[in-house]
């Protein structure tokens, strides 16, 4: 009996070595464990044996069966894995081949700048309001302390439609509308983004159509320091957290005092470079404290209220921020240009 057992065992070892596939293994299983398999063979003619012998044969064949099953199971799982791997290998793709482009659009870079500014100002409690591009002279100029024949109108050569109507030259026109609309004459904070027009020939730095965002805060005890702090927030949001702001006296008829606002150069940080022409500062916008004539003209008592106003050139901000050299690029709408701005802002923010 022992001999038979050993013989089966050694034959099995040999057979096992020649198993290459799960199919081979199945054949092997049938050969040893099948109904007519070798182990079954062992227990043939059991009737002829004594009870003790039977027990013995039964035990041996059972052990042998367990032993072979275990080995085959072990082999089976490794074969299965190998076969799966072989199958997967046959499915190999070249992942370097070009992808299928999923088309996603994007907003215009000027909208992107407006969105960023709006987000900032809304977070500071400003309302975003708009006004018409075809404006009346009264709102665009006169009520902003720019009477007819005022020399300061030279800076804003206008597209007139009639004597009284024109394409607005500045979003400041919305200032007047907002103040007049404010029936209770309560303090308020607004920004007004929009298109504006001046009668300039188009070239790399001039555009007859451009965008501005006007900011206006009217309240009690509003000071120039408040304007500075506000514009610092703006500069840091748009140009990075280390930016500083400097005020240079200037003149706008609707503010008194008036200031041009410079931001420390985003390229050199103020040391002086070709972008800031060696000065360390870049002019970004005009601003000032709202002129009493404007406040009073719109029903806000200038003895009680003060305010500040600023006008941001959206193209200018975009050109500085991204290094765009030609303002016409914004209105040509080359898709390659537009696509370049379809991503999140990086850099230090």
């Amino acid at each position: 009996m022992k001999e038979k057992q050993e013989k089966i065992r050694s034959e099995f070892s040999k057979d096992l070595e020649s198993v290459k596939t799960t199919a081979d293994l199945n054949d092997l299983r049938i050969k040893y464990l099948g109904k007519k398999g070798l182990i079954t063979e062992l227990t043939k003619n059991m009737q002829e044996l004594s009870i003790d012998e039977r027990k013995e044969v039964g035990r041996i064949s059972n052990d042998l069966k367990n032993e072979l099953t275990e080995e085959m199971t072990k082999l089976e799982s490794s074969l299965k894995e190998k076969e799966l791997n072989a199958k997967l290998a046959s499915e190999k793709i070249d992942i370097s081949m070009p992808s299928t482009k999923v088309s996603v659009g994007g907003v215009h870079p000027l909208t992107k700048i407006c969105d960023e500014l709006e987000e900032l100002f809304i977070s500071m409690g400003y309302d975003v309001v708009s006004g018409p591009e075809v404006e009346i002279d009264k709102y665009n100029f006169e009520m902003l302390n720019l009477p007819k024949d005022h020399p300061a109108r030279d800076a804003q050569d206008s597209f007139y439609i009639t004597d009284e109507e024109l394409l607005r030259t500045q979003t400041s026109a919305v200032q007047v509308r907002s103040m007049l609309k404010n029936q209770e004459k309560k303090p308020f904070k607004i920004v007004c983004p929009g298109k504006t027009y001046r009668r300039d020939a188009d070239d790399a730095t001039h555009s007859h159509q451009f965008m501005q965002m006007e900011g206006l805060v009217v309240g009690e005890n509003i000071t120039l320091s408040d304007l500075k702090g506000t514009l610092e927030e703006m500069a840091r949001k748009m140009f990075g957290r280390d930016r500083e702001v400097r005020f240079r006296p200037s003149f706008f008829p609707f503010t008194e005092p008036s200031y041009e606002v410079d931001v420390s150069c985003m390229k050199c940080g103020g040391k002086g470079c070709n972008i800031c022409k060696g000065t360390g500062w870049i002019e970004v916008l005009g601003s000032g404290m709202v002129h009493p004539n404007v406040l009073n003209g719109c029903g806000f008592d200038s003895n009680k209220f003060t305010g500040f106003a600023f006008g941001i050139g959206i193209e200018r901000i975009a050109m500085l921020k991204y290094g765009i050299n030609d303002i016409r690029d914004f209105y040509t709408n080359d898709l390659r240009f537009l696509k370049n701005y379809n991503r999140i802002e990086g850099g230090d923010k």
Binding site: I122, D127, N221, S225, D226, K228, G229, T230
Partner: peptide
């Protein structure tokens, strides 16, 4: 030496039109 401050106004949220 102009200090930087923010306007002190009613603390109301900003809205889009």
């Amino acid at each position: 030496k102009l200090p930087s401050t923010l306007p002190v106004t009613a603390n109301t949220p900003g809205h889009y039109e």
